[in-house]
Every structure is written in C-alpha cells, then in structure tokens.
C-alpha cells in the first residue's frame, strides 16, 4: 500500500534488513515487551518440572541450580495427591470435590439467571429506567473481593454483630433462631455461589445484552404478524438469536469448572467449614506457599490445568459435533 511497499516488489521478497531499517522504531516498541512477556509468563512454565521432583529448598542457589540439584521422583507427587488412603490425598480429593461443587453451583445458577435477567432487562422499554437498573446491577462488580467478603461476613453473622440476613429471616418468620451460617459447613457452597452471583450477575448480562441489540427488529415484527405472543417472541426470536453467544460462554465456563475463585474460600474459610470451603486454589496456597511443599502444590496446579484443557476441548468438540458455535 503506497509508501511502505515500493511498486513491483512484494514485501516478502525484500531482505529483512531493508524492512528493519525502515521499521526499526516499531521493533523497538515491541521486542522489549516480547522479552518481558517471555520472562514473566513463559519462563515460570519451566517450574513445572518441580512437580516431578522432591523439592528441598537449599540456601544460596539460583532457581536453575535448585532444580538441577533436586531428586527426581517421577509421578510420585501425583500418586500422593490421588491416593485416597493418606490424609493428604483425602484432603486434596476433598478440595477437588469442593471446587467442582462450588463452580457447578455458580455455573448452573449463574448461567440461567444471567440469561433470564438479560431477557427481562431487554423487555424494559423506558431507557431511563433501564439505565438506572443496569447502573445498580453493575455496581457490585467494581468492589473488591475483600469488600465482598467483608459484606458477606457481616450479612451472615448473628444479629448482634450486624447480621441483617438473620434479622430479615427472623422478621418474616422463616426461622425463629439465628443461624450461624459461617460455622456450618453445609452452607458454604451456597455462600460461594451467592457471593459470586451478587458480585457478577448484573455484569455478566453485558455480553448477552450486546448480542440482543444486534437482533434485527424485523424478526420481532414478523413474529408478531404470525401471531406470536411476548413469551413466544422471547423464546423463538431473542433466545434463538443469541444462541451462538450462549454456547460460546458455556464452553468457556465448562473449561473453568476447576476454578471456583479463591478469595471467598480463603477469606471466609475458617476452622469448622474447611471441609466444604477448601478448594484447589486454597489447597495450593496452604500446602505450597504456607507449608513450603512446592512440589506437591505444583503437581496439584498441573493436574488442574490438564483437566481444564480436557474439559475445554471436550466441550468444544461436543459443540462442534452438535453443529453449534465453537471456540476454536
């Protein structure tokens, strides 16, 4: 095009020295960041070899020297993690169960509620009201997880410590005695799902709402002429039109099933409820950083990544064979 390519000579045929001379400033703007990224995102991948070693920290060694001097143990660490007869193995397997339970709850509830909420917002006709509602619903997304955890711990505490949820439930006579939500493990998955929904339900409607604005109004008109009522139009026009978006987000979410967040579990996980709160992320932090068992924690991280990739490509494959939209 014009200046950069002299006529008759294609860009491919010119020696790279010539292009470099012309574009050295672009190289200068990009290559330092490439090396930066290789250091901070790709070099740590080498640390995965620790999962196949018995890590013993030795003072005064560089990470490379460290790795060279560790003893190789093959798949020993993975076996320990998956061994149901040891306490450590049980604890890890329980953390996998907790991760799956929490994220399935978030996925199932969040998925339906988000789509339903988008549909309802889409039916609001007054733009002023609609914008106001959206502003309110998006707000929690911007608060940090620490604040959300703080609000949740207050809401769920006893009335004397400001627990307004207990207050409310007692006022409408659903319960007669306050519940110690955080001290009872049975509530924890629900607490995780509830806080995630509170924070992100409104925000997650954005992508669906964006997809809905691009629906051709003629489709609604045609449906009306054919005698479709509101609900039929919501089902056959709106939902049908955003199906590709729904399928894409479902694939991505299934790929994330082994990630159920970290903050709520770490911040609100205490003594009694640990059997239901400790998920893989918390396990890695507790056994890795806090207890110094780097090899085991890295192995747990690798297991998670591998399963996530299988889930992602698996759901993508299913979507493709059902002739749906796919991620790749």
């Amino acid at each position: 095009m014009g200046i950069t390519t002299s006529p008759g000579v294609s860009a491919k045929k010119r020696p790279w020295r010539v292009t470099f001379k012309k574009q050295w400033q672009l190289y200068l703007m990009s290559f330092p960041m490439l090396f930066y990224l290789l250091l901070f995102a790709y070099v740590p991948l080498l640390g995965w070899v620790m999962a196949f070693q018995e890590f013993r920290p030795r003072f005064g060694l560089s990470p490379i020297g460290q790795v060279m001097s560790n003893k190789w143990v093959g798949l020993e660490n993975f076996k320990t993690l998956l061994d149901n007869s040891t306490i450590l193995g049980q604890r890890f397997l329980q953390s996998v169960v907790n991760t799956l339970g929490q994220s399935l709850l978030i996925l199932v509830l969040g998925f339906f509620l988000t789509i339903m909420l988008s549909l309802l917002l889409n039916e609001l006709r007054q733009t002023g009201v609609k914008r106001f509602v959206q502003n309110v619903l998006y707000l929690p997304h911007f608060l940090s997880w620490v604040i959300v955890a703080m609000l949740a711990s207050t809401a769920l505490s006893l009335p004397g410590s400001g627990g307004f949820l207990n207050d409310f439930l007692m006022k409408v006579h659903i319960i007669d005695r306050p519940i110690q939500f955080l001290a009872d493990p049975g509530y924890f998955w629900g607490i995780v799902a509830g806080t995630h929904l509170w924070k992100n339900l409104g925000w997650n409607t954005i992508i669906y709402m964006a997809a809905m604005t691009s629906i051709d109004p003629n489709l609604y008109e045609a449906a009306s002429i054919d005698g479709a009522n509101r609900y039929q139009k919501m089902w056959h026009v709106t939902l049908a039109s955003i199906r590709p978006t729904i399928v894409l987000l479902l694939i991505i979410n299934i790929g994330m099933l082994l990630t159920s967040g970290f903050e709520i579990q770490w911040l609100l996980g205490q003594g009694v409820n640990i059997v239901r709160s400790e998920n893989i992320d918390v396990f890695v932090l507790r056994y890795g950083i806090k207890m110094g068992n780097f090899s085991l924690a890295t192995a747990a991280g690798i297991l998670r990544t591998v399963v996530s990739i299988i889930l992602l490509t698996g759901s993508n494959f299913v979507a493709r064979s059902l002739k749906q939209e796919t991620l790749f």
């Binding site: 190289y27 490439l34 995102a41 740590p44 991948l45 992320d281 890795g288 890295t298």
Partner: peptide, 26 residues
C-alpha cells in the same frame, strides 16, 4: 510483519498460567 506472531504469543497467555508456585519462585 512480526506483529502477528507477537500478538499470538500474548493472546496465548490468556488461556494458561504457570500457577502460583512457579510465579512465586520467579
């Protein structure tokens, strides 16, 4: 020309992460 491969190398980082421990050691 190097723009496309560089972009790809960056986009890939959206889909994986070495994990807590290797990053900590780095």
């Amino acid at each position: 020309k190097p723009g496309r491969p560089i972009a790809l190398i960056f986009v890939l980082t959206m889909y994986f992460n070495a994990g807590l421990i290797p990053n900590f050691i780095l």
